[in-house]
Write a protein that binds this DNA or RNA. Sequence first.
DNA 1: AGGCTAGCTTCCGTATTTGAAGGGAGTCAA
DNA 2: TTGACTCCCTTCAAATACGGAAGCTAGCCT
Lengths: 158, 158
Amino acid sequence: MSRNDLASSACSVARSIEKVGDTWSLMLLREFFLGTRRFEALHKNTSISPHVLSGRLKAMCEEGVIEKRQYSEHPPRDEYVLTQKGRDLWPVVLALKAWGDRWLDGPQAVTLRHRSCGQVMQPVITCQACGQAVTPRDVVTEIGEEFAGERCTCRSEG
Amino acid sequence: MSRNDLASSACSVARSIEKVGDTWSLMLLREFFLGTRRFEALHKNTSISPHVLSGRLKAMCEEGVIEKRQYSEHPPRDEYVLTQKGRDLWPVVLALKAWGDRWLDGPQAVTLRHRSCGQVMQPVITCQACGQAVTPRDVVTEIGEEFAGERCTCRSEG
DNA sequence: AGGCTAGCTTCCGTATTTGAAGGGAGTCAA
DNA sequence: TTGACTCCCTTCAAATACGGAAGCTAGCCT
């Protein structure tokens, strides 16, 4: 199976991965959330080669994650900005950052500060319904009956 | 630049992406969070070719995201389970799922139910310090002075 | 006229991935 | 004890993607 076939997966995680789950798309998302908008700046900050960059930008436009916006008529110049669909990917990038800060050594070039409380922002996932913090153990995974048969579930217990 | 150079990036997002930010690693993480542990089951559920699968599992073991555990002596059989470092990637997978559920059409094979409140789990990101829900607009991005010079920040305002 | 910038595209050699096939170590049933 | 079967991979050839450098176009600027 190739990457593209993930689009037709029954799993929304797989479908998301097909759209934005590759190294360069994720790097570009980081960059967009940092405020970068232009081709040359994206190229310099991410070191993505122009060829790959132009392909990714095109794909992300088609997917509606970003959109092209002309910021100058003479000369005609475009910049790329996140759409709402794109901005909704913030939790993904944030989660990667939090994990890296926690588990990977290295400098921490970027800090997020919560405007309203003034503290350095440490993200916590909570349940919208009850507001409690949530970890994997707090949730039950329910697989729709119509999909259960498709999955190979062999595993040992314990 | 190649993917591997991301490891030495000043940005923890980039470092995370280098470790787990590729299609097949993300697919494997999804699968591990669904409880799959064995080579054959991982292969069948993700359609990752055995060659790539064995490479990714090896890499993820070396990174400490998963570990090999023998579940049978005769015949010798191993399974792969998430370490704490790996379980901490749950927010990443969860964020991808939430985004896919919101923005991509298709069946929703998996539902997460919050054990304690009984509701279908919709993740919200909150600030650990104050407990409030957070969106990108609520945080200020602070780039360490020693890194600011490295970045190309050209952009138009507005 | 000549040089500069932004935003790409083209080219080519290398690296990675896919897909199919194979292999080894062990169990099981006849 | 022979043959079939399972699990966990490994090997190989062909297709694909990527990296790095160069080039190209339109429109400044002097």
